[in-house]
């Protein structure tokens, strides 16, 4: 599996993502600077967490318009797997690859802690190693993770099985329908606020993030 991690000014989970990919998948990902518009052929594109462009205007807004993202949008349309974590999820909604928007946490506070959630879909390249409704604990660290979409969009997400992860009795940000992560319609793109790359070993406090990367290895 050939993976690439997009790096924006202000990304700060890019190296964590690279370590997770290398450790679980066995191959080192390429790091792609945001100003590069020629993207190598990749099986997986990761848009990492952080504060791209200092969250200016809106979280993910500026990164969503950067040269590399034009190419990422094209690849996503062609079916290349794209994983957006935290700020990466915000970037994916800003580009329209995923529906909805991520708003300021309902508490107005930055939330940084482990959160319990359930993996709701097992038939995707990102989640095929999970059991149905398997409960996991993955940390969040964000100020703008409050998922919002209109009722019709939310209903469509539910009907199409696009809710990947849902907070379980533990919603840290006020997201609608406790949504923690969603797929695109074809389940080739996953955006999620929790950070699976931070729980890939006991020395890091947990291993619940490993299955996402193992799922990708199995699928690709």
């Amino acid at each position: 599996m050939k993976a690439g991690v997009i790096v924006f000014p202000g990304s700060n989970c890019d190296r964590d993502a690279a370590v997770a990919i290398e450790r679980v998948c066995g191959t080192k990902p390429v790091m792609v600077w945001h100003g590069d518009s020629d993207l190598p052929q990749l099986d997986l594109i990761v848009i990492p967490g952080g504060f791209s462009y200092g969250d200016y205007l809106r979280a993910g807004a500026m990164a969503g318009k950067s040269p590399v993202m034009r190419e990422v949008i094209e690849r996503a349309k062609q079916g290349t797997r794209v994983l957006g974590i935290c700020n990466g999820f915000q970037v994916l909604t800003e580009t329209g690859i995923l529906p909805g928007a991520l708003m300021r946490n309902a508490s107005l506070k930055f939330v940084c802690r482990d959160v319990r959630m359930r993996a709701e879909q097992t038939d995707s390249p990102f989640t095929n190693k999970f059991g149905q409704n398997e409960e996991i604990s993955i940390p969040v660290a964000h100020h703008d993770g409050n998922y919002f979409a209109d009722e019709d969009t939310l209903d469509a997400l539910e009907d199409n099985g696009q809710v990947a992860f849902r907070y379980h009795n533990d919603n840290p940000n006020g997201s609608q329908r406790d949504i923690a992560g969603i797929f695109n319609r074809r389940k080739t793109v996953l955006g999620m606020m929790p950070h699976p790359e931070r729980v890939i070993g006991d020395e890091l406090g947990g291993t619940d993030g490993v299955k996402i990367f193992e799922s990708l290895v199995a699928a690709l």
Binding site: L57, R58, T93, E94, A101, M103, F148, A149
Partner: peptide
């Protein structure tokens, strides 16, 4: 439409 506003919200 393209940058200044997010017309979803």
């Amino acid at each position: 439409e393209k940058l200044l506003a997010n017309t979803v919200i």
